[in-house]
Design a protein around this nucleic acid. Structure first.
Lengths: 346, 346
DNA sequence: TTAATTTAAGCAATCGATTGCGATAAAAAT
DNA sequence: ATTTTTATCGCAATCGATTGCTTAAATTAA
């Protein structure tokens, strides 16, 4: 069952007393082959169970119709959705997807990049790992002439195609909403500031406070509260302050917000009356917690489609060296019970 | 930036007045090259920014170190987790992953299979689409000598490697648990019976009833209740019966169970006192609904690892034509509030 | 009937890396 | 000093498909 040679165009050619070039042409269905021999070739191809060897074809053509995707984690809703969106479009175009996960480690990210370069992929799509510091590997991609599309977590100063969420505006919307609901002391759970997305979310938080002339209180800003556990921990500290916050914006993730909710519930605080909670990402579960959690939807699937379309429209089609384009998608604030104490708005 | 030729081993050879074969040998790091020239080659390779062309290498070597994975949906927790598990192992081995999603359509599944065969992948891992009927494409894989590992949703009669969950035993456990909690009229939400997993889950339901001498009531078995919406619909019908069930086993998914819970809550039924609910899959949200939902964990990530290990241990390593192996993983019943009315057990 | 044109198919190089075999030079053995 | 062995490296074929160019055959035009 193993090691059996697969039939090649030469096998077909030999059987029909033809040249391999004719077989190739008949199979690719375009050039100068008579209808009679074409049918003959197609038939024996089927008969001999012929399948094209993409390796050889791609080597000859100098490209393989494959897009490489590197994400921190495959099994994280946001990234899985983006990938699904990319796949949806690339499949239509007959392209393939090679998926790598960096596991939030930039060392591993570098290895993934090298593999994809070796594979001669047509394009690399990447969202950076949490410990991002150095963009040398991204430079390498550019040096090899491979189109590069960064999304979500990006190296901002690097001149590449980018598909982004407007994290700052989303945060402004969220915090503004909290203020409008009458919350006075709004805490922020922030993520690692080496990542653009968390910097932007913090900036949005600060901008919104400024807009409403609300003073910034450093003791209400908690670093490193990414996970549910860390979110819970930070919440305990916040709620034990002499003057605790009356709302918490978990800008890191909905998981963090869930940690907030669980601690608040455990401590007997009423949500949203005594504590407002806002998360980020619109994970499926935010809709079914009690109370349901206000959050921000990132249109992840459509973001994936945007990425793929960007490649096909801007990069693959035209040969001219157009400037890398930046597409920004505006996320949407999803208001739910966890921040709705001003019932007039509902 | 485009169309620049990448440096090949010939470029390196020319620059050093050597033959390409020496460069290849130096790069592959094993054969007869003197230390001096090896260092020379390695240095200029770095200098010229050389990256191997995997296409050429794989074509020559006759295989590409890639495993193709076909799943119904990438962004479904269970499959995303399995993929993450596979990736974890394959990454260690220096293998790549090509991911395809069939979108629950077997027509598309066939196309995916063909693409992967063309790519000369080393192995194909597949979980069948919902409308599975014909396994011709799986036969084709075997005919081409490509190792095939089916998981979860499989064509049972086809002689291939398989990694399965013991769905029947899991269902027996779940239903037995319901009976032990004193539920008398247990309804079943079942999925399409062309898929082995749903057949097995139904079989487990029936077996458990038989074990406890509980009569099977056809009006309590609802077909086609896969999604949350369909689960809700079926629940309404069930609860409007003259003699409604006192427990519902949503064997299709946790989403279906969520639909059950929402309808029950809306109709003012107390869970678990008046209605017991059990789902399937241990989706993240089942832990945080109120009440939390009893469900079955499938060890998805570890299942992915098992799949990959099966390939490396059983298939890749030994050349002998060993019989396809079947690995069964026993899922675990996670008892939560939605079925716990007999408090002694907690 | 002959010349011009179109059509069909073969030839051979190419993509880039790998590898068995042979050749040369240097080192070791006699 | 001569022969044998070993270490290095080059040569050339190979993997399978593609494609520009050429040739042969068939068709049309004159």
């Amino acid at each position: 069952m193993k090691n059996q040679k697969r039939t090649t165009i030469y096998d077909i050619a030999k059987k029909l007393n033809l040249n391999a070039s004719s077989v190739s042409r008949a199979l690719s269905n375009n050039s100068n082959v008579s209808e009679a021999t074409r049918k003959l070739i197609l038939d024996t191809a089927k008969e001999l169970n012929y399948k094209q060897n993409s390796l050889a074809s791609n080597l000859r053509k100098g490209h393989n119709q494959t897009i490489g995707v590197i994400v921190p984690r495959i099994n994280q809703n946001y990234f899985a959705d983006v990938i699904a969106g990319i796949e949806e479009v690339t499949y239509q175009k007959g392209y393939n997807l090679v998926i790598c996960q960096s596991n939030e480690s930039s060392a591993r990210e570098v290895k993934c990049v090298n593999t994809l370069i070796n594979q001669h992929v047509s394009c690399i799509v990447i969202s950076l790992s949490a410990d991002f510091e150095d963009d040398k590997h991204l430079q390498t991609i550019k040096e090899h002439g491979i189109p590069l599309i960064q999304f979500d977590r990006v190296a901002e100063h690097l001149d590449t195609f980018k598909v982004l969420n407007d994290n700052e505006q989303a945060s402004i919307d969220a915090v503004s909403h909290l203020i409008e609901q009458g919350y006075k002391r709004i805490a922020l759970l922030e993520g690692p500031q080496n990542l653009n997305i968390f910097r932007q979310r913090k900036a949005g938080y600060l901008a919104a406070l400024k807009k409403f002339n609300v003073p910034v209180l450093p003791e209400l800003i908690k670093e490193n509260a990414w996970t549910k556990e860390l979110g819970a921990e930070s919440t305990k500290e916040l709620l034990n302050l002499a003057e605790p916050p009356d709302a918490i914006f978990a800008s890191t993730s909905d998981f963090s917000a869930l940690g907030v909710l669980e601690v608040a519930t455990k401590m007997g605080l009423k949500v949203p009356e005594e504590l407002g909670i806002c998360g980020y990402s619109n994970e499926a579960f935010t809709e079914i917690t009690s109370p349901s959690i206000t959050t921000i939807d990132q249109y992840s699937v459509s973001m994936g489609k945007t990425i793929a379309n960007l490649y096909f429209q801007e990069i693959e089609s035209s040969e001219k060296d157009n400037n890398p384009k930046i597409v920004s998608i505006k996320p949407k604030l999803i208001v739910r019970s966890s921040t709705l104490r001003n019932k007039t708005e509902d």
